[in-house]
C-alpha cells in the first residue's frame, strides 16, 4: 500500500470510524442505546451468536432470537497501544483494546475504560459502560468491576 501524508482535508473525506448499523444488527444497536445488551441465540441448537447474523454459526439455522444478557464478563485478552491503531484514533491514546468474554462464551471487541491500564490483568472481571454520544450509535465499553 503506498504511503501518503494524510491532511485534515483528506481525513474529513473518510467514513468516520463509527458503526453504521446493518438491518440485521439494528436491534443490537437499539438495545445498547437503552443501556441493554441483546445477543442472538439459536432456537434450534441453543448456541449463542455474535456479531448478529441471520443464521446460526453452529448449525446454520435461521431460528435466531434476541435475548437480554448481563453486560459483565472477564478480560480474555487486551493490549495498551503506544501508537494509534489508525490516525483517526490518535486523540484517544492510549487505547486499551480488549476482547471481553461473557459467561455464555460470547466474546466482544471493546475497550477498557480505566485510569490505570498498568493494573489490568487477563481474567479481570469487567462490567459494561454504555458510551452514549449524539453523533453515533452507543458503544459498549467495559470497566474493571472492582472499585
Amino acid at each position: 500500500m503506498p504511503r501518503y501524508e494524510l491532511t485534515p482535508e483528506m481525513l474529513a473525506e473518510l467514513p468516520r470510524p463509527i458503526p453504521y448499523p446493518t438491518p440485521t444488527a439494528q436491534p443490537f444497536w437499539d438495545a445498547l442505546a437503552r443501556d441493554e445488551l441483546l445477543l442472538q441465540r439459536c432456537g434450534a441448537c441453543g448456541a449463542w451468536v455474535h456479531y448478529p447474523r441471520r443464521r446460526c454459526t453452529t448449525c446454520m439455522s435461521e431460528d435466531l432470537a434476541w435475548e437480554a444478557v448481563e453486560p459483565a464478563g472477564t478480560i480474555h485478552a487486551f493490549t495498551v497501544t503506544h501508537r494509534p491503531t489508525a490516525v483517526v484514533f490518535a486523540d484517544q491514546m492510549p487505547q486499551v483494546l480488549a476482547i471481553v468474554e461473557l459467561p455464555n462464551g460470547v466474546r466482544l471487541s471493546t475497550t477498557i475504560v480505566t485510569d490505570d491500564p498498568a493494573a489490568l490483568r487477563g481474567g479481570d472481571a469487567v462490567v459494561g459502560v454504555f458510551d452514549h454520544a449524539d453523533d453515533r450509535p452507543t458503544l459498549l465499553r467495559f470497566r474493571p468491576a472492582r472499585g
Partner: peptide
C-alpha cells in the same frame, strides 16, 4: 466496519499484541 473499527480494533499490531498478552498470561 460495524463491530471492530469503531472501538479502534484494526490493523495488525494490536491484534498480535493481544495474542502475545493472552499467551504470556
Amino acid at each position: 466496519a460495524e463491530f471492530e473499527i469503531p472501538y479502534g480494533h484494526l490493523g495488525q499490531n494490536s491484534g498480535y499484541a493481544m495474542y502475545a498478552q493472552r499467551y504470556h498470561e
